[in-house]
Design a protein around this nucleic acid. Structure first.
Lengths: 167, 167
DNA sequence: GCGTTTATGTTATGTCATAACATGTCACGC
DNA sequence: GCGTGACATGTTATGACATAACATAAACGC
């Protein structure tokens, strides 16, 4: 299921990059990672990751579902949600709650607590490493005896491009 | 509309506190703040804040709505959402996206970027000041030229109490 | 091969959120 | 006092997001 039926969509790239690279490369690494953990990157899951990667933006579950069903998979919500949940569990994708969407992780296998910067004007989403944020959270948590399992750190505002135009 | 009809609900307090204090005090400060900004803390809005304060936990919009309608206000979703949105805009309440809920801000008027620690076992939510987190985000943002307007920082895990029982 | 586990498909429903428009209220200038 | 414009609230209707529960099928260990 590596049919090249999804074009890189307009705008909203997470950052400058070589498109061919990022999809294939990340996909391959994802596969390796999953295997090394005993997790199965089945066809639906693989295709789901592919959809996220090729979109190069945050995508809603129902949009993913539509593409999955076009690819011959089921067309009911749980199909998409299950695959997406799997990817998130494996650290291969992130869920961005402010906009109810999912995005492929661009650095699978690395530290995991990216911060997301969401442009309220154009809708683009930038993923930035957030080591410092993570550390700050960890220390705040240990202060109150809380043990963190998952985090989400999201900011809404204006991206550089829209800042100029809109501000 | 200061009828004492909502008891402090069981469990889930954000932190140890004197109940009578925190509600009245915060409410008074909120009112002052709103006025000083030219914003109107109307009856529905005031009652909504009161509901959040007395619950002492994160509350869903439809639960707020139910209580509003018991108090004689409208019983359709926009009634609750509008009041809640107002409070969030004014920094008098926070929206916790991970659990689709709202909580009164315990320190209105101060810096605004609390972090939330949500226990996946008992559902309690702790609000912690997050200066360090905020600073880290600001510097990450300036690194990519992004200007932040809003942030949400949420962690899921186990609170101290549940850590012992469940771990 | 056979039973257990894991994944997928499907039905149905639950939960959260907002668009759009009608009605009401209040402050202000005249 | 009374029109008028701004803001707030009420109401109808619908849209968008998410999951429970069960049926079927594939994979995996033995």
């Amino acid at each position: 299921m590596s049919s090249p039926d999804v074009q890189p969509e307009p705008g909203l790239a997470l950052e400058a990059h070589n498109h061919a690279d990022c999809c294939g490369g990340v996909l391959a690494r994802a596969e390796a990672l999953a295997v090394s953990r005993g997790a199965r990157l089945t066809p639906v899951r693989r295709r789901t990751l592919e959809i996220l990667l090729r979109s190069h933006r945050a995508v809603g579950a129902y949009e993913v579902l539509e593409k999955l069903s076009e690819s011959g998979f089921g067309n009911q919500p749980p199909v998409a949600y299950r695959a997406l949940d799997f990817l998130v569990d494996q650290g291969l994708a992130h869920r961005i709650r402010r906009i109810n969407a999912f995005a492929a992780c661009m650095h699978p296998g690395h530290q995991h607590t990216p911060a997301f910067f969401i442009c309220r004007n154009c809708g683009s989403v930038a993923e930035a490493p957030a080591e410092a944020v993570r550390n700050a959270m960890m220390s705040a948590a240990s202060g109150i005896g809380f043990s963190i399992e998952r985090m989400n750190v999201e900011a809404l505002g204006l991206c550089p491009a829209c800042e100029g135009a809109d501000a």
